[in-house]
Design a protein around this nucleic acid. Structure first.
Length: 595
DNA sequence: GCCGTTTTCGGCCCGACTGTTTTCAGTCG
């Protein structure tokens, strides 16, 4: 279970927080719109009005520029944002200029604080939440648990014994799953499920769809799509994947399972001629699907998970390619299916040729047991060879990062001299003498310049002073870049997904400096980092800046994290030429190619 | 509340499954 939104139990929340004008960022305003949508739903409002607020919230989250900066431009119209009309534009202006949102405050006064939290429980929607609030006075998750355990729910109109039991299960099991999965966990689970089900799926088509297939940064649950002659047999087998799993639902073609870990798995079985349409549908995203369906409508067709239909006649459905082609589109890679303009690009043949994992020729950010890695340099090199890399940069931490046993200049030089000695034993892979160099709080480098000049590859990063102002961080990054000794900036925003927010800086200035000095920006494949994210990539792509994709491996197995960095690059629309380590070693350093 | 080559009204994506009810509303994806 996610944490209660109020975190205050039954205590009434203040009407509003008095933030000064302009202090609300896009995400906060989007959250206010989502809250308004939830409260309107609890009021049983017009569903299309509710949807308008949700669409607007999504649009605002997708914007890559702060609303406050857009509104300061007199030529900019808020109504140019998709899903924002005259009314919602007025509400955004109200929030930005006065810090208030009168409609929302009115709604908050009408519905007890905490009732909205009930919507977090699977199986409880706006109708049931309102019913519980009105009849039993429940307006918090704690209250819901107490009433459920006291069997007060069964008997309320619309609730029975089963619903009550299901709610109790949801409350308990959802608490076990702490939020969404990071990509490595999702990937492991997807692989285990795929091989476990293989004997039953056999030669039939089977795919893990959903946000996992779109390589989102985090995955909520796994959506499986199968074409199978014997759906019941497949469901039986899935049910036995985890003996402690709970079946949340099972019909003729659809089954939902909650594993003991709290993770949910949904299976959908469709006829072979529908597999492509079903895969498309269950891959999403929701907004991508909605756009496709509207497109189908405009062509006098209907798109659902069984196919693309003209009346009762199926025009496509066996493969995704068929469906897209019949709609007049080229096939769109799942990573781009977010409703961010990819359909228009596909319609006009302008989709980027996305980078592939096999384009990557080397890893430029790995650690060894000399600092905080788990395996020796030799083991890491041998593992990199199994990835058929042409080059590998050993980039252990510099001294400032004491928790990771960072190396001083003498230790680093000793490591490099070792590399010189062993290079002869590895004729197929070039070992680059590298370092992950700390950028100190004042922008100075954590290693003498003379030492750095001997390095083949320097990747610099901020590890301390993450809470400095954007202006100070900007200066630090630019100072490091202008040293001319840094080849790339590692995990450029410092975020840890779900744990630590990104620090902000002046993108324009940093990107310009990066271009001028031939310094690349890293896309880090650690599942908790995936830094840069989609918005950051979209910003950086406005400049002819180069990127590197890295695993930041701290063990042999983590070299596999490279694929997550590639997926992230794909989500940002990057092609191989945007990425330095798709190149031959001689062309690696962007300094050499841009100057 | 948004939107428009069907443009200022009348649409708005579509279907499976559950539980409670007695033919379907609510929820979910």
């Amino acid at each position: 279970m996610r944490q209660s939104r109020t975190g205050a139990g039954d205590k009434p929340a203040p009407d509003h927080t008095n933030l000064p004008p302009h202090d609300r960022d896009n995400k906060e305003i989007a959250e206010l719109f989502d809250e308004a949508a939830d409260l309107l739903a609890l009021h049983n409002e017009n569903p299309f009005r509710i949807r308008a607020y949700r669409n607007a919230a999504r649009s605002l989250r997708d914007l890559d520029q702060p609303l406050s900066s857009l509104t300061s431009d007199p030529t900019y119209k808020l109504t140019d944002i998709p899903g924002i009309g005259k009314d919602l534009a007025g509400k955004i202006t109200e929030i930005l200029s006065t810090g208030e949102f009168k409609l929302l405050y009115k709604l908050r006064r009408q519905i007890p604080t905490g009732t909205r939290d009930l919507l977090l429980v699977p199986g409880i929607g706006p109708k049931k939440a309102r019913q519980l609030e009105r009849v039993l006075g429940i307006h918090s998750l704690e209250g819901l648990r107490a009433a459920t355990e006291a069997h007060q729910l069964a008997g309320v109109k619309g609730f029975g014994a089963k619903t009550e039991a299901n709610i109790l299960t949801s409350l308990t099991q959802a608490e076990a799953a702490s939020g969404r999965m990071l990509l490595d966990e999702a990937s492991d689970l997807a692989n285990r499920l795929t091989s476990y089900l293989a004997p039953t799926t056999g030669n039939n088509k089977f795919e893990v769809a959903g946000s996992y297939r779109r390589s989102r940064e985090t995955v909520g649950d796994l959506d499986l799509v199968a074409d199978c002659d014997d759906a019941a047999a497949l469901m039986d087998r899935l049910q036995n994947f985890d003996t402690a799993a709970t079946v949340l639902g099972r019909g003729a073609t659809k089954m939902s399972l909650r594993l003991a870990s709290g993770r949910q798995v949904d299976l959908r079985v469709v006829p072979r001629e529908s597999f492509g349409a079903a895969l498309l549908y269950f891959t999403g995203s929701k907004s991508h699907n909605i756009e496709l369906r509207k497109m189908a409508q405009n062509l006098g067709l209907k798109l659902n998970e069984y196919g693309l239909f003209e009346g009762d006649i199926a025009r496509a459905g066996r493969t995704e390619e068929d469906v897209y082609r019949t709609l007049g589109l080229t096939w769109i890679p799942p990573e781009l299916r977010e409703g961010h303009g990819e359909i228009e690009l596909a319609a006009t043949g302008r989709l980027p040729q996305l980078v592939e994992t096999q384009d990557i020729r080397g890893d430029l950010h790995v650690h060894t047991d000399a600092t905080d890695g788990r395996h020796s340099m030799l083991e890491m090199i041998e593992a990199a060879q199994r990835h058929h890399y042409e080059y590998l940069a050993i980039t252990d931490h510099s001294q400032r990062v004491t928790v990771a046993k960072g190396l001083d200049e003498f230790q680093l030089q000793e490591q490099w001299s070792n590399i010189n000695k062993i290079q002869g034993s590895f004729p197929d892979i070039r070992i680059l003498k590298g370092v992950e160099l700390d950028i100190l709080e004042d922008g100075a480098l954590d290693m003498p310049k003379e030492t750095l000049k001997e390095a083949d590859w320097v990747i610099a990063a901020i590890h301390y002073g993450l809470k400095q102002s954007p202006q100070v961080i900007t200066k630090r990054l630019i100072k490091a870049i202008q040293s001319g000794l840094v080849h790339a900036i590692a995990h450029p925003t410092g975020r840890l997904i779900g744990k630590r927010p990104a620090y902000d800086f002046e993108w324009t200035e940093v990107c310009k400096a990066a271009v001028d000095y031939g310094c690349a920006l890293e896309i880090n494949g650690q599942p908790s980092r995936l830094d840069l994210n989609e918005q950051a990539l979209s910003r950086a792509m406005n400049y002819p800046v180069h990127f590197v994709v890295s695993s930041d491996a701290h063990s042999m197995n983590e070299l596999n994290f490279m694929k997550f960095a590639v997926y992230q690059a794909r989500r940002g629309g990057l092609a191989a030429p945007n990425i330095l380590n798709t190149r031959d070693l001689r062309l690696l350093k962007s300094k050499a190619t841009t100057s």
